[in-house]
Design a protein around this nucleic acid. Structure first.
Lengths: 106, 106
DNA sequence: ATGATAGTTGGCAATGTTACCAAACAGGCA
DNA sequence: TGCCTGTTTGGTAACATTGCCAACTATCAT
């Protein structure tokens, strides 16, 4: 795999996380596996939309699926993702600090 | 900020990282600040393209810019992002393990 | 001033993403 | 068997992202 291909692959994985609904689902899956129906209630979109979001996460290697009777349960494949969200929050906080500092100097 | 808005904001930050060229630049910036010209050489696109990628990163709050003479130097604002890349690599590795396991059982 | 260098911005065509609906599919049950 | 429920897939219209070119701005040197 060339360096370019590695970055492309990493970008694909990160891009899979870059959607509000998918982020919400990943957060929920941190608690443990959930069926599509539960995730649908959580995000509030059409079930077909939720299913497509989940297939994006599956293709990226972020979640696993397990069929049990009528339901399909999804689970996080690589839990370290969750740690990262703290860092994203740090980015958010730093932005609001900057905004606050700006408004203080106006 | 509602829960939806928070997820939208987080998604925006993560999405900003979800492009091969931007990922490559973030990785390079982990070593320290770099001018646009260096980053351009690194990714090999038109300078206008690189500049637009950098503005995506700046808007997301991921990098800072500093002008010095003719050059503009960019730097990472929140270095914890780098830790996360190890986790993305874990996702990649686990995928190739799964592929290896699959090809072994065929 | 003139010109050269480093970056940014606007425009635009090509491409990718998203969300809904409708249709298909699979497992469990009458 | 046929129906119900949970999920996936196909189609498509609206929207967002990308990358190049050309035009512009800003700083420095002659």
């Amino acid at each position: 795999m060339t360096r370019q291909e590695v970055y492309k692959h990493k970008a694909q994985i990160i891009k899979a996380m870059g959607h509000p609904s998918r982020l919400m689902m990943i957060d929920a899956l941190a608690e443990g596996e959930k069926c599509v129906c539960e995730l649908q209630q959580l995000v509030g979109s059409d079930m077909s939309t939720v299913s497509k979001h989940l297939s994006v996460l599956r293709n990226a290697g972020l979640v696993d699926d397990r069929k049990q009777g009528l339901q399909v349960f999804y689970s996080l494949r690589v839990p370290c993702i969750i740690n990262f969200f703290g860092c994203v929050e740090a980015v958010m906080d730093q932005r609001s600090e900057a905004a606050a500092a700006y408004s203080a100097t106006r």
